[in-house]
Design a protein around this nucleic acid. Structure first.
Length: 565
RNA sequence: GCGCCCGUAGCUCAGCUGGAUAGAGCGUUCGCCUCCGGAGCGAAAGGUCACAGGUUCGAAUCCUGUCGGGCGUACCA
């Protein structure tokens, strides 16, 4: 498809003297108008003329220059229509020869992208809120992989901080009242909740919590550390089960504890940069120069321990030194905007020119109809339950519509989990999501299962076709009416680039929904099997190409594409 | 108070580096399984693009202000 765009653009450059790259072609309002559009307003401004008249004159010139592409003036627009046979040949050959690699490119060659994703907290169950970071981050990583970047997905586990002192204190006090080994996460959650209920009126408990964290940070490998290690191990075992279901893996799983040995050197480095100061007993970096009300970045509390910001500073230095990243993406909720802004401000004050490669990929909150989720208040929906219920619903539908399906249980899991993932990636990531069961469990309309179903239908047609039908001589003219679908397939590579650049997986989900809609209409109107051999071959090629793009798109999102369901 | 994010159909959302009559899904109503999968297809109804100014030949899109919602605002993460 790129070849047509280039041909048109260079013909326009030739005919008008506009600079290449100073304009770009648009998609016509309606498919009947043409395949590509060039609005003539810019030219009208430059030449102080009437845009409609200019379009008319230009059409004449371009029709002489272009071969196999017709230029049609429609009012102030100049629309281009590629010869139907050429369009089908070019796009289908492009997709079919690349196969599963269609859409991949080399634009990221030699560049490294570090992605910080998921980052659950030890000792707390994963809620549907953690789903967002995991699923968005993993999709962004796969998109960059497809574009040739070297990617490093890091799961920055929340395994450090004062709450672990509290947790150790709670385990010490009440550990034998819960079943830590049998059901670790729920037990730890219960202890965590109990600690917060009782600490307010119990200074001894408060002191025990603080002391435990101080011991943890001091590096002493004693009782506190042993308990902490146990909690971490038990939690990770549970998390890994969920990651397996979501089909997500990480290149590095590094808790904040990993940066323990880097904390002092990091603080020293920032002190050496001459930008720190003492304030109210704490070590801070003032950020007043970025705004009167920008709060300072705290590196060390008055009691000597470090903070979240200290550990993130250590992590970003470590990552830069290790990878010299081209981008470092933090897939973290929008409620932490200020934190990442401060981190970037500190880097800026240090005069580090790679500061702008650090990006906070913020996403909206997941909330319940009754309000904000809160683990402590028990106002949460656990991810495991959502996945279970979705798979169960999918299983029921399969039992009803396709009772003889082989491997039904596995496919129910793929459809159920796929629905959950797709639903999360469907809208722009900055938007808050209200968690509504009926929406998550919906498998019709703009949903993952709709796209999966479309894929399965195409796979079914291919299965039923005669051997060799795909390799016959295609009659591409028979696809004259299929231009919108062909053009949609041609857009796929561009969609991947845009989605990766913007770190916005919804670019891809929205594209796939549109493509699936286009395909379903097309199937209803064009019978594939049992036509003239040339016609069947051409349509079968289109079916195969569409199937490839849907499968590839879904896999980039982390959603399975079963051949039947 | 201050800062940031969001505001498009009854609901959930596309469209936002300005361009042709603002598009989907859900829900509602009406059609379509002697024909490759009805988790589908076709059609109808539904909009002062929060409001008010401004920039422009042209604004849902850019700028300013107002309102509404969310998040954050130094020793939690």
């Amino acid at each position: 498809m790129q070849e047509f765009i280039q041909a048109i653009e260079s013909a326009i450059v030739e005919a008008t003297g506009l600079e290449a790259g100073s304009f770009s072609l648009e998609k016509p309002r309606k498919a009947e108008l043409g395949d590509f559009a060039f609005p003539c307003f810019l030219l009208a401004k430059r030449d102080k003329g009437n845009p409609a008249k200019i379009a008319g004159e230009l059409a004449g010139k371009l029709n002489e220059a272009l071969d196999g592409i017709e230029a049609i003036a429609t009012g102030p627009y100049l629309n281009f229509k590629v010869d139907r046979g050429d369009l089908a040949r070019s796009i289908l050959n492009g997709v079919l020869s690349a196969g599963e690699a269609y859409g991949n490119s080399e634009v990221g060659q030699g560049k490294t992208v570090v992605i910080d994703l998921s980052s659950p907290n030890i000792a707390k169950p994963m809620s549907v809120g953690h789903l967002r970071s995991t699923v968005i981050g993993a999709a962004i990583q796969r998109l960059h992989d497809a574009l040739g970047y070297k990617t490093v997905g890091i799961n920055h586990i929340g395994d450090w901080g004062s709450q672990f002192g509290k947790l150790v204190a709670a385990v010490d006090r009440w550990g034998d009242t819960v079943d830590l080994e049998g059901d670790p996460i729920k037990s730890l959650l219960a202890l965590y909740v109990r600690y917060h209920e009782e600490e307010e009126n119990d200074p001894v408990l408060q002191a025990a919590g603080r002391a435990a964290f101080q011991e943890l940070e001091s590096g002493v490998d004693g009782h506190v550390r042993a308990v902490w290690r146990k909690l971490t191990q038990l939690s990770m075992e549970e998390f890994n089960r969920t990651y397996a279901r979501l089909n997500v893996s990480f290149d590095e799983v590094r808790g904040e504890a990993f940066y323990e040995d880097y904390l002092e050197p990091t603080i020293q480095r920032i002190v050496d940069a001459g930008i720190t100061e003492e304030s109210e007993g704490a070590l801070i970096v003032s950020l007043k120069e970025f705004g009167e009300n920008v709060p300072p970045c705290l590196l060390r509390k008055s009691d000597g321990t470090t903070l979240y910001a200290t550990r993130d500073m250590a992590a970003v230095f470590h990552r830069y030194e290790l990878y010299h990243f081209h981008r470092c993406l933090y897939v973290v909720g929008g409620d932490q905007r200020l934190h990442f802004q401060q981190l970037k401000y500190v880097l800026q004050r240090m005069g580090l020119d790679w500061e702008d490669r650090v990006e906070h990929v913020a996403f909206g909150m997941m909330r319940l109809p009754e309000g904000k989720m809160s683990t402590r208040k028990g106002q949460v929906v656990f991810l495991e339950d959502v996945l279970d219920r979705a798979a169960e619903e999918a299983g029921k539908i399969i039992a009803e519509k396709n009772p003889d399906l082989e491997g039904a249980a596995e496919i129910a899991e793929q459809v159920g989990v796929g629905a959950v993932i797709f639903n999360d990636l469907k809208r722009e990531r900055v938007k808050d999501i209200e968690f509504v069961w009926s929406e998550v469990l919906s498998f019709e309309g703009d949903t993952g299962p709709y796209v999966q179903y479309t894929h399965a239908r195409l796979a079914s047609i291919l299965r039923k076709s005669e051997a060799g039908a795909l390799e016959g001589t295609p009659d591409y003219a028979a696809l004259a009416e299929s231009a919108p679908l062909l053009l949609a397939l041609g857009q796929f590579p561009g969609v991947l680039e845009k989605a990766a650049d913007r770190a916005e997986p919804s670019e891809l989900t929205q594209y796939l929904l549109g493509l699936a809609r286009e395909i379903n209409s097309w199937i209803a109107a064009n019978r594939v099997l049992g036509q003239e051999p040339g016609v069947t071959t051409a349509r079968l090629q289109l079916v195969d190409a569409a199937r490839i793009v849907l499968a590839r798109g879904l896999s980039l999102l982390g959603v399975a594409a079963p051949d039947s369901m």
